[in-house]
Design a protein around this nucleic acid. Structure first.
Lengths: 338, 338
DNA sequence: CTGTTAGCGCATTCAG
DNA sequence: CTGAATGCGCTAACAG
């Protein structure tokens, strides 16, 4: 680890003031091309590398944006991250990623370290455990702009990029009804979480619009755990004449399907299923499963672009830039009970 | 974004010199407990938060370690990352993650930005595309220590944490032989990559040791792509009397399995398969599949601990701390053709 | 277009 | 145990 060359070394070697060197290296228009060339050449010659730490301290910016997701191992999130990274890198930003693991405590810690590290902005899909947003409003006042994605939160001057849960649910349920299902179970998450509530509302609306009565015992709540999935699967088997399942809860749905499979209950020949899911696992278990495709990479690109504009203050009215992205129903053969 | 309180604010308020404040806040033993308490109290009162940027500049350290993996969406890597994060956070280090996407160019860029951002050390699983290690030796001389994981590289004074590919392959193949397989196909990756070569050697050795002839046409090379997997599946179907498959290539193997499934070729009733894989997808496709379990979280913990020791210079002989972790054969029922 | 001056906030000498 | 002084490397005012 030899001593690094600084702008002062270049300055001395060339007998040009260090501020001019700094300007030249930052390609300021206020330096003549001639001296720029001179300086650039010398910089390369001496193996100069800007000390970003010093630069950051001076400008109080880091050119870094923070990302917080529940877990990077979920396909949906790693895809979103890919979209974010691509956009950020192209705009000259670095990216740091943290996982909250659905824990509120952990999320608070992450936000706090990102704040300490002076990231210029934050992209976050809040954890399920998050009960208030003080840490986030604190980030906003002391740090920089925030853009929510995937799990929208209502917060002053803070945009959300998400999908239309209601519509997606409605369409999925309608799809099952069209294919002859009349006794459709709904796998859902906790209703106190807005996202799952809206999905349930979409399901209910689709049934109502098609004159199918709502039976509360057909709406199965659960957490996002595998054990819950097995519980749900068992409940389904006890319900009379179930002929369709609409799941808005990936994790539990997958484990439910595995449970069915182990017990030789064929899906979707016996039961038509629509899953809310981009996960390759469900596709692997049941290649013919119809799924709702969420825009993942695209969501990352949009959220990231928006955040960068907010950082650069190209935009003045953040909340007006919230966006609802469309979903797509990927219809595969055997969920059509024809 | 109001102005932040600095140690000078505390210094003034208490009429104590700022260096003492700095020392107290860093819990230096050279400050009396009494003044420490005083300062700490005031710091909280004023809502003081250390400016890490300034601290970093001064100390020329960032308390951050860089991670580079081919892609975070691979279950194996996201698990390793979990292990790394846990260990790093407990030791007071932050973590930044980059994906090379198996591209050499991208890997070089990432290493370069991590270097510019003065991460204290680097954990890397090199991309498939990487053809030389200049960027890494540059990081070592100008940045800090490196620890390789998963894909071991031979480099001066640089430890690797990886598994014993040869042994794992040998055991997997032996397992198939024990269960009566005699015509075992090997799904592999490019042989010019050391890792795949060693895996193939393990396969060959197991056959040889059991007096089964090696047939080159039973060793199928491929890249890590899905299309390749389908190609391999087709080739298998053309080979005479295949009764076992040992795969050391996750991605291709999964798509091969899906191809089998689509064509109603039952696995593993017709063909016994052993896969090299922690991926939940293959488990989902075929719950009874026997797999080689790689230590993932554990690998992260070990690599991360080692790197931190190297950063702190608690260790003087890095290369002697390379470690080969054991694998475990998870034997599930129906791959035993009994 | 270039030079001068100053300071971002902290940690580390060196004194005492 | 505490204070005074210095500078990490860069950039931003302000001159000229």
């Amino acid at each position: 680890m030899k001593k690094k060359t600084t702008i002062h070394d270049i300055s001395k070697a060339l007998k040009i003031n260090s501020s001019t060197v700094s300007r030249a290296l930052n390609n300021s228009p206020r330096v003549s091309q001639k001296t720029k060339d001179l300086i650039q050449k010398k910089a390369i010659e001496l193996g100069y590398q800007k000390n970003i730490l010093a630069s950051n301290l001076r400008t109080n910016k880091t050119n870094t944006i923070g990302i917080i997701v529940p877990r990077i191992s979920r396909t949906f999130f790693s895809s979103v991250i890919s979209g974010i990274e691509e956009t950020a890198y192209n705009a000259g930003y670095n990216v740091v990623i943290g996982q909250s693991l659905e824990s509120f405590e952990r999320e608070k810690e992450l936000v706090s370290t990102l704040l300490s590290n002076r990231v210029d902005g934050l992209l976050i899909s809040v954890s399920m455990g998050t009960t208030n947003y003080d840490h986030l409003s604190n980030f906003k006042t002391n740090g920089g702009p925030i853009v929510f994605f995937d799990r929208p939160i209502t917060m002053l001057d803070t945009p959300s990029i998400s999908i239309d849960d209601y519509e997606a649910s409605y369409n999925a349920t309608k799809h099952l009804i069209k294919n002859g299902c009349k006794n459709i179970v709904h796998f859902s998450g906790f209703q106190k979480i807005a996202l799952y509530k809206r999905r349930t509302e979409g399901y209910v609306a689709a049934l109502t619009d098609n004159d199918i009565p709502i039976r509360p015992e057909y709406i199965l709540e659960s957490q996002l755990s595998e054990a819950d999935g097995i519980e749900m699967a068992k409940k389904v088997l006890k319900l009379p004449k179930v002929d369709g399942i609409y799941s808005s809860n990936d994790t539990a749905a997958i484990s439910a399907m595995q449970h069915f499979k182990k017990n030789n209950i064929k899906i979707p020949d016996d039961i038509a299923i629509v899953g809310f899911n981009n996960d390759p696992i469900s596709a692997a278990i049941e290649p013919n499963l119809t799924t709702i495709n969420q825009p993942d990479v695209e969501m990352g690109i949009i959220a990231s672009s928006l955040l960068i504009e907010l950082i650069k203050k190209t935009i003045k009215t953040p909340s007006e830039h919230s966006k609802t992205l469309g979903t797509e129903l990927i219809i595969r053969q055997s969920s059509q009970k024809l």
